[in-house]
Amino acid sequence: MQTHRAKRVEITIEQVMQSRLTTAIENAGVTGYTILPVFGGSGRSGKWARAGQISRAEGMLQVVCIVRPEKLDPLLKAAFAVVEKHIGVVCVTDCEVLRAERF
């Protein structure tokens, strides 16, 4: 089956930044993304877990976008402006999609 090259961008970021990040992504021309809950983890800022959070201050989530290669740079620039000072990880991987016209 015919597949098409695309880029998968995973941004793990603090919950409080969710709307700011998705707004920036949309403004960069990327309208398709998925928001995923994440259960916990450990990083430079220590361990954290989804359970036992009484405020949104410590929780994390993941925003996943799949875009055409030419849309990658604008997306990363927009995302970086939001996540620069915050706890999180931005990861880009190559992937293949079946319906290129959707991205």
Partner: peptide
């Protein structure tokens, strides 16, 4: 420990939440 920590994470991300 609910409203202010969330606001501080946005406005003062350099501050240590611990």
């Amino acid at each position: 420990y609910i409203a202010v920590p969330a606001a501080m994470r946005v406005a003062l991300p350099e501050a240590n939440p611990s």
